[in-house]
Simulated assay, not measured.
Amino acid sequence: MKFDHVLLGLLALHPRSGWDLKQWLAGEGQFVRSNAHPSQIYRLLKRMAEQGWVVYETDPRDGRPDAKVYRLTDAGRAELIREAHAPYEPTSRFQDPDFMARFYFSAQLAPERLLPLIDTELAYRRRQVAVMRPRDRSLSFPEDAPETDVQRLRMIRELTHEYGTSAVDAWLDWLERVRRLLADGTIPTTSPSPTSNEETPR
């Protein structure tokens, strides 16, 4: 998921300034997307305004520079919904933030995509584990590499493998739990009706 769409998803919840976006990314957002430099945020906001995806109003601040507060346009919302429905292709590293960004914003914009998203990730990770876990992990070293401590390297490699195995198993357990919650209706997968009086979460 491109960074543009992460910012659009945040603005779909409520208008924010560039500073507000930066603060979210440095806090809760660090689990959805790696932190970004303010210049990158402002550059993307400028580009999205030029594309007609966002507009801004100037908010006067006492004793501080005025802030531009951005909000989503109809075109921006359409682009965000298009992205929420785009096919998901898992990355080789399950720790990459793309899945979590899609999961977070699909819950907001396209809840019917949550179950297919989980199923795609689960299927990919199960295949990955089936192929990688039984692989031959023996090591061989050239005789002309005296700087290599074979025993230390084998220990480090086993510890790394141990961590990777437990981490991906925990990830699969979490995915399966979320899938059960989606399948039994605990997590709704339909959007509220347009006449709903529920307030947009902030």
Rank of each mutant, 00 (worst) to 15 (best):
I81R: 15
E199R: 14
D4E: 15
M100E: 15
R202S: 12
A101V: 13
F103Q: 08
P90R: 00
T73R: 01
A183L: 13
V32R: 03
L8G: 04
T160R: 08
Y124P: 03
A36N: 00
R113M: 15
D173S: 12
D74Q: 14
V150S: 09
R71A: 15
Q23N: 10
P146S: 01
I81T: 11
R152A: 11
D74I: 05
A183D: 08
G29I: 00
M1T: 12
K68W: 13
A170S: 13
L11C: 10
R154F: 00
L8T: 08
V54C: 08
S92K: 06
M100F: 11
R77E: 10
F105D: 01
L122N: 04
A183M: 11
W19H: 11
T91Y: 09
L182D: 11
A123F: 01
E199C: 07
F31Y: 09
M48S: 03
L44P: 01
R93A: 10
V168Q: 15
Y88T: 06
T195D: 14
T195W: 09
Q30N: 05
R82I: 00
K46N: 10
R126S: 02
L80I: 09
L7M: 15
R152Y: 02
L114Q: 09
R64H: 11
V6K: 00
S193P: 08
L114G: 07
E147F: 10
W53D: 10
Y124M: 01
M155F: 06
P38N: 01
A12H: 12
E158M: 11
G29T: 02
E112V: 06
T186Y: 00
V54I: 13
R202Q: 11
L172K: 03
P201M: 09
I118K: 08
H14C: 06
R157L: 12
Y88K: 04
L8A: 03
Y88H: 09
Q151T: 14
S106V: 03
W53R: 08
W24G: 02
K46S: 13
P201Q: 10
V54M: 03
Y88P: 03
A145E: 15
R82T: 15
N197M: 09
P65L: 12
R157I: 08
I187D: 01
S193E: 13
N197C: 05
R137G: 13
G63P: 02
P15Q: 12
L80M: 10
K68Y: 14
